[in-house]
Amino acid sequence: MKLASYNIRKAVGRDRRRDPGRVIEVINSLAADVVVLQEADRRLGQRPTALPRRMIEDHTDLIPAPLATNDVSLGWHGNAVLVRRGLAVTGVERFDLPSLEPRGAVAVEIEGRFRVTGAHLALMRRYRHQQLRELHRVLGDQALATVVMGDFNEWSLRNGMEELSRGFHLHAPGASYPTMRPVAHLDRFAFSHDLELTGSGVHATELARIASDHLPVWAEVRTTDAAASTLPSAAGANAARG
């Protein structure tokens, strides 16, 4: 399964123009089975989405997971999850995360066998530590293979992620921020121990460098138990229906 994480900055690009169409183009070029978005919704009022649902439906092969609690948002606390058609979303969860400002994380269960969690953590490390402890508490003891991904806002590659490292393998695919000259590995993955990373990278196309201030990151994973069923894939689901 190919996974991607992308902070779309409310579809405002490096040129300060809001252009959801080019964000959609970047998402399509990722060719991922699941895409976790940060800053998918605006911050004020009812938090209307910056990436219209109709545009996603008409121009991608992805479907938004039902995370919004109103009719205008795409996700929750700006976190949204897009799942490729043919993959069944069998459950969703929302988690409040402690912080000075409202923060949350979302989890989407796919085919009853795999869970993707998206988060956008606080700017201050002391609050990130609290948020990581909470994520470990709500995710660490569950049976499903799990990936946590998003904008962790951690600049250090050695420190700052200790709470989550107790139950997950941590991985930073590369420098993804800022797009003009990436130096920070803010966008990362954390994999439960029953998953194996088979490939990863930073999606550094010319369009991606303009569409947001973060570059998307991606990872390919598979189960480590050879006897276990493979991770769900859209191709497999569509073949079964055929």
Score class of each variant (00 low, 15 high):
residue 215 L to M: 13
residue 160 G to T: 03
residue 168 F to N: 03
residue 163 E to M: 04
residue 231 L to E: 08
residue 200 S to L: 00
residue 168 F to I: 09
residue 130 Q to R: 13
residue 126 R to P: 01
residue 219 A to V: 07
residue 137 R to C: 05
residue 219 A to Y: 01
residue 199 G to I: 03
residue 132 L to C: 05
residue 223 T to E: 08
residue 148 V to Q: 01
residue 186 L to Q: 07
residue 153 N to R: 05
residue 117 T to Y: 09
residue 169 H to W: 02
residue 213 D to E: 15
residue 137 R to M: 09
residue 197 L to A: 11
residue 195 L to H: 04
residue 191 F to G: 02
residue 190 A to M: 02
residue 134 E to N: 10
residue 187 D to M: 10
residue 180 M to R: 14
residue 187 D to S: 07
residue 144 L to T: 09
residue 130 Q to K: 10
residue 182 P to C: 07
residue 156 S to D: 11
residue 171 H to Q: 09
residue 178 P to K: 01
residue 203 H to N: 07
residue 151 D to R: 06
residue 129 H to E: 12
residue 142 Q to F: 03
residue 152 F to W: 06
residue 172 A to V: 05
residue 152 F to L: 15
residue 225 D to M: 04
residue 149 M to K: 00
residue 181 R to S: 10
residue 153 N to L: 08
residue 144 L to K: 05
residue 121 L to R: 07
residue 120 H to Q: 14
residue 218 W to S: 09
residue 164 L to T: 10
residue 130 Q to V: 00
residue 195 L to C: 03
residue 129 H to P: 00
residue 119 A to S: 13
residue 153 N to G: 07
residue 158 R to A: 13
residue 129 H to M: 02
residue 128 R to K: 10
residue 229 S to Q: 15
residue 191 F to Q: 03
residue 205 T to D: 03
residue 154 E to C: 11
residue 204 A to K: 11
residue 214 H to I: 03
residue 232 P to W: 00
residue 154 E to N: 11
residue 165 S to V: 07
residue 233 S to K: 01
residue 175 A to W: 09
residue 148 V to R: 04
residue 152 F to E: 04
residue 123 L to Q: 12
residue 195 L to M: 06
residue 159 N to F: 14
residue 190 A to F: 06
residue 201 G to R: 06
residue 134 E to A: 13
residue 116 V to I: 15
residue 157 L to I: 14
residue 143 A to N: 10
residue 173 P to T: 04
residue 163 E to F: 06
residue 154 E to D: 12
residue 180 M to Q: 10
residue 174 G to S: 00
residue 231 L to S: 10
residue 181 R to A: 13
residue 147 V to H: 04
residue 132 L to F: 13
residue 122 A to L: 01
residue 212 S to D: 07
residue 189 F to E: 06
residue 157 L to D: 15
residue 222 R to H: 00
residue 207 L to T: 14
residue 228 A to P: 13
residue 176 S to L: 09
residue 212 S to L: 07
residue 225 D to I: 08
residue 116 V to G: 07
residue 168 F to S: 03
residue 203 H to Y: 05
residue 216 P to E: 05
residue 124 M to R: 14
residue 234 A to T: 07
residue 118 G to R: 10
residue 170 L to V: 11
residue 135 L to E: 08
residue 232 P to V: 05
residue 170 L to W: 15
residue 192 S to W: 05
